[in-house]
Design a protein around this nucleic acid. Structure first.
Lengths: 198, 198
DNA sequence: TAAGTGTACGAACGATCGTACAATTAGTTT
DNA sequence: AAACTAATTGTACGATCGTTCGTACACTTA
């Protein structure tokens, strides 16, 4: 298995582009992300950036996929290392709050910013975001459903805890403080306690 | 008290501009809102639109204020017609869900879209949005605090119910269905029941 | 070593952005 | 009717947008 030095270098450039693109998009949105600005910040040529994707929409889609990979690595995978049950669910939700609070993306959760931007406009970007959202919701629901002694509807429980997570992210980014995370942790803990009380 | 027909006409034009601007911004964001596009859609000149505001930022600020007025008229004022207590709180939260569900703004809640867009960038628009958000949260908290026999922390209760409202809006706009509103109504009703149980 | 391939670059394109300013139109005041 | 004022328009500007194209260079393969 040989590696072509040119291709290797190209892929590394592409990774750098996408990392910065996801950072920018979490703050300014996927439309605020311009190819020229990206090129300037990375000190490469505008056409060099463009050539990797072929269109702005493809850049946006690649950025979403790159951000999803970061999200999975940081939130999903660690939770799947824990055996199914209450501990896994707690790990998943705690992991999400840490991912948001530690500003893995400088503008808070990437998907919070970008979903609100594209939720009302048709197109492939929106379709991709809908699919990722569906998978995230399903993961929370199925993880909750595996908690022994669950007395609540997993779908309803998933809705409620996701609501707490997202509002914590939104409020903390907007206000610049950490209070909302404490509120969310309280709310999540209460919800889990109620949902597992026989 | 005389009225100048020219001024009167100008104010009417301004109102039309701002109404359309809020509609566009709820879908495309306040940055996606361009002066040229606004002029084309309203069939007036670009400079005519511009002259009313003097800068894009002023247009954005005026749009936010106009949307806030719509929000107050549709959600806040009707609730304040109800005497303080549980009924007023329920009216407030139901009013919000109706405001979102009936698509007063075509992209769902105007502030949901615009806060997510500006939450991570500094500037006067963001400052204005922070202030409106603070006032909304305070209204929900103080309305909850007036509910007789409340056993919950009003601040925590406000956080939780606002989380349900916002996720209902976000999910329904993203997915294009109404299921999230039903989930939110269930969640709000449960939260209120718990909060008033002695 | 010669030919071929892949990445990156610089220059240029048409379109649109926000903004400026003088001219025009409509309505008021004297 | 003339002078004045406010809303609106037309034209133009520099900047930036996404995109296209021809070229230069790095690397691999024959």
């Amino acid at each position: 298995m040989k590696v072509d030095g040119r291709v290797e270098r190209g892929e590394q450039t592409k990774r750098q582009i996408l990392r910065r693109a996801a950072e920018i998009a979490s703050v300014e949105g996927l439309e605020g992300l311009s190819i020229g600005r990206l090129a300037t910040e990375l000190e490469v040529s505008k056409s060099g950036v463009f050539a990797h994707f072929g269109s702005k929409e493809e850049l946006q889609l690649a950025t979403v996929r790159a951000a999803a990979k970061v999200f999975v690595d940081q939130v999903v995978t660690p939770a799947l290392d824990v055996p199914p049950g209450r501990a896994r669910l707690e790990r998943l939700l705690d992991g999400w709050l840490a991912y948001s609070e530690h500003r893995t993306f400088p503008g808070g959760c990437f998907f919070y910013a970008v979903q609100a931007e594209f939720d009302a406009r048709p197109g492939r970007v929106r379709d991709t975001l809908v699919e990722f959202d569906r998978r995230w919701h399903d993961l929370v629901r199925s993880t909750a459903a595996d908690v022994p002694g669950l007395v609540a509807d997993p779908d309803q429980l998933a809705f409620e805890v996701i609501a707490f997570l997202e509002l914590a992210n939104g409020k903390s980014v907007l206000r610049g403080d950490d209070e909302a995370y404490a509120r969310a942790r309280t709310a999540v803990a209460d919800a889990l306690a109620r949902a597992t009380r026989a």
